[in-house]
Design a protein around this nucleic acid. Structure first.
Lengths: 246, 246
DNA sequence: GTCTATACCACGATAGAC
DNA sequence: GTCTATCGTGGTATAGAC
């Protein structure tokens, strides 16, 4: 008991390096909130996850979340940015590497798709704890009706989308630019939806109860499906072949 | 004033047919809540829509929602069921009609897809007011993380999914049953996601500002994409063609 | 049976003390 | 930086009016 009374302000000592916000061994409040938020947002979605639940799981005070991130919405964006931005950078870098390696010849759709999928898989497999199911959080966010989420993701993806649209345009020179945009949109949608769903996990468990690398199995089946869709023959928009019968 | 005192229970007179809960000219409380809820859920999502907002828009008391539907979750399910169940019945009926019309020959993927899409389009086009954007509400619900929504939709779609899986299995006899299940899952995902997104509407507005039938344009582009994906060559799951490079 | 008023606890956010 | 107290609003349960 004497010890504690001798050094009453001992809890302040580790803060000698005053601007150091990132300490590798001891996780600071901000990171604790971020980690807890990622896990809980993934499990329950944005609206259904309360700040009280997050701050309790992170063992910090309720007001600390608003102090460090401003609002629940900004905390959510911080959670997404932390892993999404590096992943999209990886995607674009990988695509560039493929393009330079191929010389002047256009890449196949399969190759471009793998440039989209491999960084996502790397995130799903290699990251410490929280990264494992981050793709599911991302897929759900992609379908969320909240305007602030849609606008945020739209900005986050803009550069990557433009980059891949150009690549698909070169791979599919017979398609109009508009059609390429649409098909890339379908690809992103199918990818997001597949990663977000729990149905897919149920199907894997049903067919392959022993499998571990769920996401890899998933994407290995999805990739050929999407590549074939991208190469589909064009359908005239004024054609009456579809949707005519009652 | 004499009149009102003579017939004090005049307000009960229209209820002579005591079990009549649906009156065409005057909308009852339950339907008013249902209509307002459909519109607001579609606009803001499930969690972000408050019962107070719904009941105010419907001009009914707050407690009426819980009285008629039990809870906010059950109200949401009631909103979905009202239009989703008839649509899936239509889909299965249309598929049966196609199959009997074709005699013994297997249907094409395009034909089966149109059996899925046409009832959805009919709902988007023909229904009075609320039906217009119901598909977007449905697509969002399909990606919602809330367990009660996922379980509800899983039950709602079970019969229709089984029916269409069998049809696709006959159309694609070279595919294993498991592969057919996966590809049907991708089709449902792409359809839901495409209908749910606001990005698609932005793209339509960008390319065709004059167009009205948004959903029809959307599905006319999506259908060939999905049909080609369904016919894609099988990719061995242990193949190392994909996802090997860094 | 329907509907209303009201009370209850949890939520996000913020001000102000330390 | 951190914490407590508090505000307005959320879903829900219930007692009682008609």
């Amino acid at each position: 008991m004497a010890l504690s009374s001798v050094v009453p302000s001992v809890s302040r000592l580790p803060k000698l390096a005053e601007q150091a916000t990132e300490r590798p061994n001891e996780v600071d409040t901000k990171s604790r909130i971020l980690d807890a938020a990622e896990e809980l947002f993934m499990e329950h979605g944005f609206e259904a996850t309360s700040l009280r639940l997050i701050t309790t799981a992170a063992s910090v005070n309720l007001a600390a979340a608003n102090y460090h991130f401003g609002s629940k919405e900004e905390l959510f964006q911080a959670v997404l940015t932390r892993r999404l931005d590096p992943m999209n950078q990886d995607r674009m870098a990988l695509l560039t590497a493929y393009e330079t390696a191929s010389g002047g010849t256009a890449l196949t759709c399969e190759k471009i798709i793998s440039a989209m999928f491999i960084p996502a898989l790397k995130l799903a497999r290699n990251h410490d704890q929280g990264g494992k199911n981050f793709l599911r959080l991302l897929g759900r966010a992609y379908a969320d009706p909240a305007p602030f989420i849609r606008e945020f993701l739209s900005n986050q993806y803009a550069a990557m989308i433009a980059r891949f649209r150009a690549a698909f345009g070169r791979a599919l020179p017979h398609l109009e630019r508009e059609e390429v945009s649409w098909r890339l949109h379908f690809v992103m949608g199918a990818l997001s939806y597949t990663l977000a769903g729990t149905d897919a996990l149920k199907m894997i468990a049903q067919f392959h109860p022993e499998e571990i690398n769920n996401d890899e199995l998933l994407l290995k089946r999805l990739a050929p499906f999407l590549a074939a869709g991208l190469r589909a023959p064009v359908q005239a928009t004024d054609s009456h072949q579809w949707f005519q019968e009652t």
